[in-house]
Simulated assay, not measured.
Amino acid sequence: MASIRLENIVKRYGTFTGVKHMSLEIADEEFLVLLGPSGCGKTTTMRMIAGLEDPTEGEVIIADEVVNEIDARDRDVAMVFQGYALYPNMTIYENIRFPLRMRGVAKGDQDALIRRAAEMVELGDYLERKPGALSGGQRQRAALARAVVRQPQVFLMDEPLSNLDAKLRASMRVQIKHMQRQLRVTTVYVTHDQIEAMTLADRIVIMNRGEIQQVGTPDDIYGDPANTFVAGFIGSPPMNLIMGEARDGRFTAEGVSCACPQALAGPVTLGIRPEDCTVGGQELTGTAYGVEPTGDVTYLTVDTGTRQIEVKAARDFRAAIDSPITIGFDPERLYFFDANGNRIRDLT
């Protein structure tokens, strides 16, 4: 298969810079997810890997070969898009077969490849149907099979699950990850959905405004965020970020008071994840703004007067709206960020 390197990639559109001096290494067989809000540059980055966009500066290197001057059709990559892009007048069999015909694969070899790809996505019984007779999830699986059948050295997937409902997205995530492990193909996956990123990726690249904010495993990104953007983007609900003042070993903000390292002084932002908060502590006082039972957990929103704090409470927790609430923080799970939003790590 193939590794991918991006070396100081820049993409400009007139005076607007969509991707800013991006360097990244993607290992052979790795499942890498580009994650970020709309307009952050993640799809542009993937399109430059595919050859659908030319970088303004820098080099795209696939399998140790600079591919800037190589056409998209000759880069041996397969793409799966948000839209299924299936031919409605063809059967699923013919849709999967299409890239084999385009690449001149011998007819005698095509049938086995088509059926193997179809079985991998559990469409073996649907090959004679046309796309209009399939559900959205089945059509997306057909698009995956069409990519798989080519046996490319790189898979590129641009928000392939965003048209599906929540239940189908969950099942398709499992299928995509299992298929990638079977095929052992280097995969770049673009999404704005942090749940997809956390569940699929070997590593996540979080982007914002054309720049990389952090690269790491899902555990690294979640447990060790580099800045307030990453901390506030990852997690459901995301990390609570509370602006306040540190002095003499105490962090204070309206309705909030907790111990902090003695080395901290001046304006800082405290970060605490909802699952690291407990009802009944002494670090935060406020009122119950919202109580949302979900079966396995109750989401509690606490209003301090100037901000709302999200808490994951026990499944059987209940409180009347506007009733007084006190919240505790796990002292081992506090994060602190400076005035620029960067993580403060050296607190000795």
Rank of each mutant, 00 (worst) to 15 (best):
K177S: 11
R343P: 08
F251T: 07
D303Q: 14
Y87G: 08
L52A: 04
G295S: 04
Q140G: 09
L264A: 01
D71Q: 15
E128V: 00
F229H: 06
P267Y: 13
V80R: 05
N340Q: 15
P324R: 02
M198D: 02
A170G: 03
E53P: 14
Y126R: 15
V302G: 03
Q153R: 15
G210V: 00
H21K: 11
E57M: 10
G39Y: 06
E128I: 00
E245G: 04
A197E: 09
Q82I: 01
R181E: 13
A147M: 03
I26R: 12
L127W: 02
G235T: 01
Q175A: 09
R333W: 00
R318F: 06
A320I: 03
Q262G: 04
P237E: 04
L270E: 11
V297L: 14
D74G: 06
G223L: 15
S38H: 06
D330Y: 02
I49K: 08
L113I: 11
E211F: 00
M22R: 02
K20G: 03
A78C: 07
R315A: 15
K42E: 13
D322Q: 14
V205N: 10
R250G: 02
Q82N: 03
V311H: 01
T304C: 14
K20Q: 10
Y13Q: 04
I176V: 09
G290F: 09
A112R: 13
G210I: 02
Q308N: 03
P131R: 01
L156Q: 07
I92W: 06
E275H: 01
Y93A: 07
R115L: 10
R209K: 13
A313W: 00
Y84W: 11
K20F: 05
P37E: 15
I204S: 06
P88R: 14
G137N: 12
G18D: 08
P225H: 06
G124A: 14
V77A: 13
D165G: 10
V174W: 04
F155V: 10
